[in-house]
Design a protein around this nucleic acid. Structure first.
Lengths: 252, 252
DNA sequence: CGACTAGTTGAGGCCAGTCAATGTTGGTGG
DNA sequence: CCACCAACATTGACTGGCCTCAACTAGTCG
């Protein structure tokens, strides 16, 4: 079911013997945490491991950081998942991200020295702080690390732009299809099933993320289920036809 | 009319005597180009100036780089303006950015080594290439430059998130109000009038940027004009009531 | 068990999209 | 210089997809 065969990545498995970094490797955090440490010299890896400091344990609903709070560190999710939300001045709230194991969040705080959004745990979650000043300092000693940091900041921009495309020009069914395919891929990268998973967000939150109302989310789920595309039971989802989903996601 | 009183910024004016960088200072590029060079040592500034290499002259409609093209450099707009667009696999196109003098674009290419979007000149435009490898190398010798690069990458993320908020939860009037206020602010930062400017995009492009159809853009403009908020004449806009516009932008 | 939150489903309305006709602008060549 | 054309913009009438409001159901947790 859970194909862990690919983990830990052979090139890295031996180089770090202890510390949180190893854990990230073992748990197949294919995304940002691996991106950050990709290709690093053994020495830098060890130091990076040391930078990963205090890890917070969060209960469902706890906030990791608030919008406007002084920025000091990035956070790597070690377990669980988070949403990030931005707030309009009028109080309206929008989910801007759904983050899982291995993701690094808080990147938007670097520019302004304050967190631009709020991060809230969607389930019991542990997150490691990566004090940015120390990361920056370490990056001065490692060309690769420096490059990796640029890269994952940049990738975030790319992802946000894809999201803008979704929000600006897709309709309800396409949006949900894209969302589900994105989750599918990310779960797979982490070694979980790509067709069977549990949503950690409410319909309301999914709707906010995708720019639609909760009722619409619910209706689209039902419609997808009716035509045999998937099966939903509250928050557990089974995808039956990834290819059809892809068609829906990319149509018009 | 054009208040150039603030330019060049006193602290920087004397430190670079020639080269493109000085030009950016003089023309009040308050945004990214200044951000990039903020607080740099005289020596680094000189070297940065040297990194700014070939400048391309683009005619209206020319593309500076295409989506998918290998990424080698960032581009600083020295004159004129550009739009950036992403393309869905189905061919649908969405404007993701509107960039003017001083803006640095192409940031989303760093992560994937390929440009994620396409940049097209909206008028006759000149842009300077900043070969990223050289920039990166220079950043190794200057803590401040390194920090500045992180910062403006990060700010871009913040801006994209604001855009997601707009696309995900605002309606037509709010969107256009936000758009106009954003332009107003940016023109002001550059020393131009904050209430009177010429749009360099068609209704179609504005619509694409804001996630609405060109007819809707046109109608909202007309409505705003009817109530005396502004005056539109094709692409020239005069704003009469910034405060009301702000109200509209932040309501619900 | 009752109170609460999350989710589903239906009915109706509205905002923005679609389609279409007309007006305006700007660039080109005679 | 003006006529012409193409691209851009405006406006109207109609449509439709999503939102709103509301009722009902299904879990969850003291």
């Amino acid at each position: 079911m859970v194909s862990l065969a690919l983990y830990p990545p052979p090139a890295l498995a031996g180089s770090v013997t202890a510390g949180p970094l190893r854990e990230f490797m073992l748990h197949g955090s294919d995304r940002t945490m691996r991106e950050l440490s990709a290709g690093l010299e053994a020495d830098t890896l060890r130091q990076l491991d040391a930078v990963i400091s205090t890890s917070s344990r969060l209960k469902k609903g706890d906030t990791l950081y608030q919008a406007g709070a002084p920025f000091t560190a990035l956070y790597a999710i070690r377990q669980g998942s988070c949403k990030t939300t931005v707030l309009g001045e009028d109080g309206r709230e929008q989910v801007t991200g759904y983050h899982m194991v291995g993701d690094i969040i808080g990147l938007d705080g670097i520019g302004t020295e304050r967190h631009g959004c709020e991060a809230v745990a969607l389930e019991d979650t542990t997150a490691c702080a990566l004090p940015f000043a120390r990361l920056e300092k370490l990056a001065r000693t490692s060309v690769t690390l420096q490059h990796n940091i640029y890269q994952f900041l940049s990738r975030d921009i790319g992802r946000d732009q894809d999201m803008m495309l979704l929000l600006g020009s897709m309709q309800a069914e396409e949006r949900l299809a894209v969302f589900l395919l994105n989750l599918s891929e990310r779960y797979q990268q982490r070694g979980y099933s790509s067709t069977e998973f549990v949503l950690r967000m409410t319909r309301q939150e999914i709707g906010s993320y995708l720019g639609m109302k909760l009722e619409t989310v619910s209706r689209v789920f039902s419609r997808f289920q009716e035509v045999g595309l998937l099966q939903v039971q509250g928050r557990s989802v089974k995808l039956f036809a990834l290819s059809t989903l892809k068609q829906i996601a990319g149509r018009r």
